[in-house]
Simulated scan of single mutants.
Amino acid sequence: YDVRCYVCHGFKIFLNSPILPAECGIKGDRKFVQVVPFSEGENLDWLIVVVVPESDFMERIQANTRTTIHLSLVALILAIGVGLITARWITRPLWQLSQASMAIANGDFERRVWVDRSDELGNLAKAFNQMSAQLKSSHEQLAEYSRSLERKVSDRTQALQAEQEKSEQLLLNIFPAAIAKRLKDNQTAIADYFPDVTILFADIVGFTTLSSRVSPIQLVSWLNHIFSTFDRLAEKYGLEKIKTIGDAYMVVGGLPVQRPDSAEAIAEMALEMLKAVQEFCIITGQDFQIRIGINTGPVVAGVIGLKKFIYDLWGDTVNVASRMESSGLPGKIQVTTETYHRLNHKFIFQKRGPITVKGKGPMITYWLLENPSNLPQ
């Protein structure tokens, strides 16, 4: 058919072409045209022509496009939100586990992870909490064991220190501190020369007769009391006790540390020894008396031998001091001329005169009587 489209003012549509929308223009506006054949029976054979302006057609498409874009944006936002929520839902327990692990690594065994879910992350959190509780229990047990071990070590250390102090004190009761240190340093033999020391010997008069009248226990008890008093006096005056032999007592001043007033210290001690024995006799009702001899001069002092060490003195000064004691009188202090010359400016003496000393011949000796500064004014 050759049909003129009155609407399109002369635009022809050929029906032998596909029946599709075509374009035409009216007053410059683009239109979409669609021709559809319509027939009913033998007498009705029409063509249906549909003309739609481009603006109306594209408005619906553009509206649909805008709706699609809006829906897409909403879907994108929803997807991002759901993704963030899902990621947070998944990663938050992992972050909590990471923080709790770091806290436990820093010693905070109280840290727990609270995840209220029953999936793998929930099971992991429960396992982590159990591990944390076990670590806390193990840490507490280890800490308690450590404290117990520290207490034991402290107790053992204190006990060892106490034993060392006892041993040290025992060693100092036998040797002067300087000599004890040298012995601990494995010095085998010690022999030192001292040019000026003062030596005191004392013994109890009639000790042998006394021992036959009292029991040995009583006699030793009395000796212990007397010699302990002498020990305290030696400590008071800074003197060095050397030894006791039976009822004899030996003390020296001026060693192992030399001192210029050793003779004065020995003289003061000797006077107090006489007073101490007198007081002891008053207390016990016994008649004890002692003889004291003093001498000043050079000696050699040291420790020799391998067993049962003793710090001892050697030299003529020692022998003369012993002779001053053995040749003295009960209740008296006999000193040599050497000692007298050291003390006559401070103490009161009485000249005894010459006596015969075994191995030395005649010697001038003196009795030490008193220190004037101690007399009542």
Results as ranks from 00 to 15, higher is better:
Lys31Trp: 12
His345Leu: 05
Tyr6Gly: 13
Ala87Pro: 00
Trp222Cys: 02
Lys181Met: 08
Arg117Gln: 14
Asn106Lys: 15
Lys241Met: 05
His139Val: 03
Leu271Met: 08
Ser212Gln: 14
Ile266Val: 15
Met273Pro: 00
Leu172Val: 06
Gln377Gly: 07
Arg66Asp: 13
Gly328Met: 02
Met273Ser: 04
Arg111Thr: 15
Asp155Glu: 15
Ser373Glu: 15
Ala133Arg: 10
Asn295Phe: 00
Glu264Asp: 11
Arg66Met: 08
Ser215Tyr: 03
Phe280Met: 06
Thr209Leu: 06
Val115Leu: 08
Ile85Trp: 09
Ile77Leu: 15
Pro37Asp: 05
Ser55Asp: 10
Leu223Phe: 07
Asp231Leu: 11
Ile19Gly: 05
Lys166Asn: 09
Pro18Tyr: 07
Leu375Asn: 11
Leu343Thr: 06
Lys332Tyr: 00
Asp312Ser: 10
Ile217Asn: 12
Ser146Arg: 14
His345Asp: 13
Gln158Trp: 03
Gln286Ala: 13
Lys351Ile: 01
Leu183Ser: 01
Val74Asp: 07
Ile333Leu: 06
Arg232Tyr: 05
Gly331Thr: 05
Gly315Gln: 01
Leu200Phe: 07
Asp29Tyr: 10
Ile304Pro: 06
Val277Lys: 04
Asp45Arg: 08
Ser137Phe: 06
Ala189Pro: 00
Tyr340Leu: 04
Phe128Met: 12
Ala63Asp: 12
Ala248Cys: 14
Val7Phe: 14
Ser211Thr: 15
Pro216Thr: 11
Gln96Trp: 03
Leu239Ser: 04
Ser221His: 13
His345Lys: 11
Gly361Pro: 07
Phe14Thr: 10
Ser326Pro: 03
Val153Lys: 07
Leu142Asp: 06
Pro176Glu: 02
Lys346Arg: 14
Arg60Trp: 09
Met269Val: 09
Glu23Leu: 14
Phe38Thr: 07
Arg232Lys: 10
Ala178His: 08
Val50Thr: 13
Arg232Leu: 11
Ile283Arg: 15
Leu369Ala: 05
